[in-house]
Simulated assay, not measured.
Amino acid sequence: MSRLVLISGCSGGGKSTLLTELGGRGHAIIEEPGWRIVKQELEGDGIALPWNDMMAFARRAIEMAIADHTAAQGKAGWTFFDRGLIDAAAALQHLTGEPILEGLSAAHRYNRSVFLTPPWPDIYVTDPHRRHGFDEAVAEYDRLAAIYPVLGYNVVILPKLSVADRADFILDRLETP
């Protein structure tokens, strides 16, 4: 069983906050490739920003997610990913129609259980790194919720609970066979 665990789902659904909680409990965490790319691009020339060139952004996210996956192999304990390769590849496939998802996901597997944060308007906010609206976030969530099962993952929808309770929920699900 893979100890590499994806937390995906709706943009603005609490993934990053949840990973901070899991990291505070001593688990390895991998920040979302998209956030890291936006930060780098805003400090540089800004070419691969999602609102400037979504295809360049998605391609960079795929490269970064593959590197993250490779670096996490063999680590002791759980490693939690704020999004990952499948999210990036799904975005590029949605944009271009290129059938890249199955090949990439077969070569870079995560734990069979993928945890999705559902749309949660009460906590959704835009900021300089997240400029899209809630409707776009929900559409992305719907695509991901449909894609993961097709790729052989068991989708677990996270309940709308406190951050600590969500972390407990994930850890309990992972420890239960």
Rank of each mutant, 00 (worst) to 15 (best):
G97N: 13
I147M: 06
W120L: 12
P50N: 12
W120R: 13
S16A: 02
Y141P: 07
L4Q: 04
M55A: 12
T126P: 01
A106T: 10
K15P: 15
L95G: 08
Y153A: 07
N52I: 15
G152A: 09
A71P: 04
L158M: 14
R131N: 04
S11R: 12
D53S: 08
T96H: 09
R3T: 05
D53T: 05
L101W: 01
Q40D: 12
R3I: 01
N52E: 09
T126S: 02
F169E: 10
T79A: 11
D87F: 03
D122T: 08
Y124N: 14
P33F: 10
L85E: 14
L144V: 08
I29L: 10
T117K: 00
G24K: 05
L171E: 10
T17A: 09
D142A: 13
L95M: 05
D82W: 02
G44H: 01
R130H: 13
D53G: 01
A28C: 02
R143G: 02
L19G: 15
T70E: 15
L49D: 07
A61K: 00
L104A: 06
P121Y: 00
A71D: 06
N154T: 06
G103I: 10
A167E: 11
D168S: 10
V150T: 09
A91E: 15
R173V: 00
S8K: 13
L174K: 14
I100A: 04
I123E: 13
L6Q: 10
I170C: 06
R25M: 09
G97D: 15
E21L: 05
L18V: 08
I37C: 01
L49C: 05
L158I: 07
E41Y: 01
P177C: 02
V138P: 13
A137N: 14
G152F: 10
R173L: 05
G34F: 15
I157Y: 05
I47K: 03
G97I: 10
T117Q: 04
G9M: 07
A61N: 02
I123G: 13
L116E: 07
Y141T: 11
N111D: 08
A65C: 13
E43A: 06
R112W: 05
A71W: 03
A76M: 13
A167D: 10
P121N: 00
Y153I: 10
V5A: 04
Y110R: 03
N111T: 15
R130N: 08
T126Q: 09
V156Q: 11
